[in-house]
């Protein structure tokens, strides 16, 4: 039985195993590889996506749980050819080192700013605590979020 969901505004129907985590459905089936695999147990946040606007871990969110819901990924963050302010801030601050975690970081930050456009330093730290960066780019992630939020940085 086909499962239907919306990914970055487009309706997608699939006959894949309903227990497939969205992470693997996005990557292997749709070729959307911006969402990354890091740990498989919701510890690292590299697979952070939005389901109905809520940041969730793609490795723990099964296809069957997302039936009929709106899924947004890093590939859908830029709109009408214009980067999201977070994406621009990430480039301006040269945040990435290896870059592997950054899509997940940006998706967590985007969910934060959507709900809380002017977060405090503490609120930024709290919202980002689920995303690991093995290279240690945390200071620049903080600065980039502040820039995107119009808080300096």
């Amino acid at each position: 039985m086909a499962i239907s969901l919306k990914i970055n505004g487009k309706t997608v129907k699939t006959n894949s195993d309903p227990e497939t985590p969205l992470l693997w459905m996005l990557r292997d089936e749709l070729g959307m590889v911006g969402t990354k695999f890091g740990c498989g147990i919701a510890q690292c946040g590299a697979c952070t996506i939005h389901v109905d606007g809520i940041p969730v871990r793609g490795c723990q969110t099964l296809l069957e749980d997302a039936e009929g819901l709106e899924v947004n990924t890093i590939e859908g963050l830029a709109k009408d050819g214009k980067l999201h302010p977070l994406q621009q801030a990430w480039i301006d601050h040269d945040v990435p080192q290896c870059g592997y975690c950054q899509a997940g970081q940006i998706m967590s930050a985007a969910a934060l700013l959507a709900e809380n456009p002017k977060p405090t330093d503490q609120e930024i730290d709290d919202a980002m605590a689920g995303n690991l960066c093995r290279c240690g780019t945390y200071p620049r992630i903080r600065a980039a979020i502040k820039q995107a939020a119009g808080l300096g940085g």
Binding site: I74, L77, D94, P96, G99, Y100, A103
Partner: peptide, 17 residues
């Protein structure tokens, strides 16, 4: 700024995986 940064922040294929 890093030459791959645009591809990184928009989720383009870059890595081995």
């Amino acid at each position: 700024t890093g030459v791959d940064n645009l591809a990184i922040v928009t989720g383009q294929p870059l890595f081995g995986i």
